[in-house]
Amino acid sequence: MPGIDECLLAAMRLPGARGAALVDWTSGLALGTVGDAPGGDHETTAAEAAELARMAAEHGAFAARSDDGRPPVEDVIVSNHDSYHLLRFVDTSFDSSVFLHLWLGREEGNLALARIRLGEMAARLVLG
């Protein structure tokens, strides 16, 4: 069963992956990081990504219609001219507020594939 590090390393094996982190969006703390971070600083990246994740998670406009206990939002995708940022909320059975953050080079990365794989990794991380 994968732990946090194994999960992040698996994310780094996706084509084009530059860096990955597991971040708590309430505090902005990175609980695990691997690879590079934009600007070279995982802590700053985690705090900034946490802002974005929190906004998406808390504003009703982005929530699914049915409230079945799952996180209101599955993922947040940001693209710029050279990379993608994929934030995947982790659905835990205990109370938490974490997401996986994958930074992906645009040339080599496949956003659709990465989105599916990151979702699977997020599930495996907490469900085994």
Partner: peptide, 17 residues
């Protein structure tokens, strides 16, 4: 193996901080 490693690690880190 009563709990997935990721879940336990995450909960443990949360509790430590």
């Amino acid at each position: 193996g009563l709990l997935p490693a990721g879940a336990l690690e995450l909960c443990h880190l949360d509790a430590v901080y």
